[in-house]
Design a protein around this nucleic acid. Structure first.
Lengths: 167, 167
DNA sequence: CGTTGGTATGTTATGTTATAACATGTAATG
DNA sequence: CATTACATGTTATAACATAACATACCAACG
C-alpha cells in the first residue's frame, strides 16, 4: 500500500521537511561543489556549514562562534565572519538582514535571488523560490542599473502564530 | 516656447530631481499628516526628518546624532533611534538594511512596500515604486503567511559607475 | 632543498550599530 | 494639584562587525 507522505505536495511555506535527507544532500552538494571548483572544504568551513545546516534556522555570528568554541575551534569573531563570507560568496549561506543572522541555503542550485519569509513571532524563516513567493524579480537589468545581488525579505506572521494570537 | 524640463519623463532611476520642491513638499506632507493624526511634530522629530530630507541619501544613526548635536539637540544614541523608529512607523523614513542607514521616504503616499536600488560603487540609493522596478509584489498574503513589512533591496552598479570601471 | 607565493587560520584590538533601564520634563485632563 | 500620557534626557552596556598584523601550511619552482 502506498501512502502519500504528509505534506509532500503542500504549498505551505513553513511545512515539515525531511531534514535528515536535506542535511545529507546539502553536505554532498557542498563537497561536490568544492571539488569541482578546486576549493578547500577545510574542517572549519565544513563545521560552520554543518552548524548552520543542522539547525536550519538563522544563527547570529556569535552563536556560531560559541558552537565553534564548543567544538574546539578558535572562536574569535573574524573566524566566523571570514568563513561566513566565503560560504556566502559561493552561495551556500545567506545573510538574513532583518535578523543580523546567517542561514544555510536551502538549495544552492536555486536562484541566487532568494526570498526569505520571516515570522516575527515564532521567528521561523523560510527560503522560498521566486515562483513560490509569487514575487517576480525584474530582469537582471533595470533601467541604467545592473542588479548583482538582492535582499528580499517578507516579514509578518505565519498562520500558526496568527491563530494563536488573542484578539 | 515651451521647453520640456530635463529628464522630466525619464525612466532613469538615479536621475536629477528638483530637490527644492521635493523638500518643501515633504515638509508639508509630514506636517499635514501629523495634524491629521494628532501627533506631535516636535522640534526634535522635525529636525531629524529635515536632516534626512535635506541630504536625501541614507544616513547612519550616528551621522544623524552628530548633526543633532551640531544643532544643539541631545545626541545620545537612544534619541536618534527612538525618533527614527517613530518616523519609520509612520512611513516617513525607511531603513536601508544593506547599509545600516536611514533615508527619508521619497513619497509617503506611495506603497508601503518600497524597493531600494543601491549602487555599490557611488552608494547612491533610489527608492522606486513597484511598477518602476519591474518587481511585482505578491498579494499581501502568500500561503499561510500574512506579510506586514517587506525589505526589498537591489544592489549592483549604476550605468555611470559601470562605464567608469576599467575592465 | 630552500625560497617564494598563495591560501587559510589565529589573535588582538577596536570600530560600529543598537538597546535596556531608568530619570526628568511637560502638557492635557479630570 | 494629582494623574496620566507622551516625549526627551542620560548612563551604561549589548550586539554586531572589521582592521591589522601574526602564524602556519603547502605546493610549485629554480
Amino acid at each position: 500500500m502506498k501512502k502519500k507522505k504528509k505534506n509532500e505536495n503542500s504549498s505551505k511555506i513553513f511545512e515539515y521537511h525531511d531534514h535528515g535527507a536535506c542535511f545529507g544532500d546539502a553536505i554532498t552538494q557542498i563537497e561536490d561543489y568544492f571539488i569541482q571548483k578546486k576549493l578547500q572544504l577545510t574542517p572549519l568551513r565544513r563545521k560552520v556549514f554543518e552548524i548552520l545546516i543542522e539547525d536550519h534556522k538563522p544563527l547570529g555570528a556569535y552563536d556560531i562562534l560559541d558552537k565553534l568554541g564548543e567544538a574546539g575551534f578558535s572562536s574569535s569573531p573574524p573566524i566566523a565572519y571570514r568563513v561566513l563570507g566565503f560560504l556566502i560568496e559561493h552561495g551556500f549561506v545567506h545573510k538574513v538582514q532583518g535578523l543580523n543572522a546567517f542561514i544555510a541555503c536551502s538549495n544552492p542550485k536555486h536562484s541566487h535571488f532568494p526570498t526569505f519569509v520571516i515570522c516575527r513571532k515564532c521567528e521561523k524563516v523560510a527560503e522560498v523560490s521566486e515562483e513560490k513567493s509569487g514575487l517576480n524579480l525584474p530582469s537582471p537589468r533595470i533601467t541604467n542599473f545592473k542588479i548583482e545581488k538582492t535582499t528580499i525579505e517578507l516579514t509578518g506572521i505565519c498562520s500558526t502564530c496568527e491563530n494563536a494570537e488573542i484578539r
